[in-house]
Amino acid sequence: MEEIINWTFQVVVVFLLLAGGIFSLIAGVGIFRMPDLFTRMQAAAKTGTLGVGMLLIALVVQFWEVGIFIRAALVILFLFLTAPIAAHLIARAGYISGERLWRKSVCDEMKGQYDQVTHALSSGKWKQDDP
């Protein structure tokens, strides 16, 4: 019985390790191959965070202790809290500093709401008479 449990844990660890490695590899390829800043950021922020999170869960399953669990949970919490904030800030800074979208991009929601000369942001989507 104990052997079966041990074997199952090992298989779970191996699966999580390989899945995390593949996701990290996809993040690297995405940041190299994507055409403009915003699509590159998609690859880096989402896929990279998921890959590293899977690696940390593999660590928890491998050691199976409370202290390790707390530390790994801290790292996962930091990563999942800070990656979207960092991506948002870089996207905003890139857009403000005049980064071009890919020519095949279909949607630019900031278009017309941001003035490149006066640097004024407005929310023109919501008119005054809108409820």
Binding site: S24, A44, I90, E99
Partner: peptide
């Protein structure tokens, strides 16, 4: 420069991995 910052962010996440 923004591309470089994104790449640096990804490299750091991979370093944690």
């Amino acid at each position: 420069l923004a591309d470089r910052v994104v790449a640096l962010d990804l490299i750091a996440a991979l370093a944690v991995g």
